[in-house]
């Protein structure tokens, strides 16, 4: 498999909308007018820059939950990429999913679920085809100002990862039920992300801008006071 820098991608697949404008990832850089962007999101992302390129949306997370029961996206994203290219058949795609997952030592029923997932993703995505190989983009049409809006981080900035809203990673959302909560602070202590703070009465407050949805808090709460819902707010 070839890996390396792709300066002018024909198409770009992004697993979560929050990465679109991430200042370190910069997934849109180098995209030209005839390139295609696929975003895993149940909703459209209305951002000015995206008007110049073709954007396709798909709720792969929803499909993964339906078929595999987990938010595992690799087979789904792979299938979408294969279909977009217009070069790879359904059969080859599913064969590759099966082969790669078997190599990882996964059990056959899990592999089968992933194959079903890949199939639905493949069939529900439209093929756009690769642009011509002799294509030489003259200039970048997608101009994303990755820095600037929020100021340019410098070496002396501290605690500035807070600019990165990791809340979009969340597939499941923890919600504290104040009626059950005894303000024991266990969830606050165990949250790896420092996403839970305590209010003046000692009750937990979850920072949804950053909570990654690991659900350590839900597991550790001795009162079962943190329930879980599928996240839909993000996009």
């Amino acid at each position: 498999m070839e890996r390396g820098h792709i300066f002018n991608p024909s198409y770009v697949l992004v697993t979560t909308p929050s990465l679109l404008f991430d200042m370190t990832v910069k997934p849109l850089e180098g995209m030209a007018e005839d390139s295609v962007l696929f975003v895993n999101s149940p909703k459209e992302v209305s951002i000015e820059q995206l008007k110049k390129i073709r954007v396709i949306y798909g709720d792969l997370t929803g499909l993964a939950l339906k078929y595999v029961g987990k938010d595992i996206l690799s087979a789904a994203m792979g299938a979408v990429a294969c279909k977009l290219s217009g070069l790879i058949s359904l059969q080859s795609t599913l064969g590759a999913v099966e082969e790669e997952l078997a190599e990882l030592g996964l059990e056959t029923d899990i592999i089968e679920k992933n194959v079903q997932l890949a199939k639905e993703c493949y069939l529900s995505t439209e093929s756009v085809g690769l642009r011509g190989l002799n294509h030489k983009p003259l200039h970048k049409v997608v101009e994303v100002r990755y820095l600037g809006e929020k100021g340019i981080p410098d070496l002396l900035s501290v605690g500035n990862t807070a600019l990165r809203k990791t809340g979009s990673w969340r597939v499941f959302k923890p919600i504290v039920d104040k009626n059950l909560c005894t303000a024991c602070s266990i969830c606050y202590i165990y949250c790896p992300e420092a996403c839970i703070s305590l209010d003046e009465r000692g009750y937990p407050v979850i920072n949804y801008d950053h909570c990654k949805g690991c659900l350590v808090c839900t597991t550790e709460c001795p009162r079962n006071a943190i329930r879980v819902e599928r996240e839909t707010a993000w996009s």
């Binding site: 990165r164 809203k165 990673w169 420092a194 920072n207 801008d209 950053h210 990654k212 659900l215 350590v216």
Partner: peptide
């Protein structure tokens, strides 16, 4: 340590 790191969820 503020939130927003790229480390895996549940790290």
């Amino acid at each position: 340590l503020v939130p927003g790191t790229p480390l895996c969820a549940g790290c």
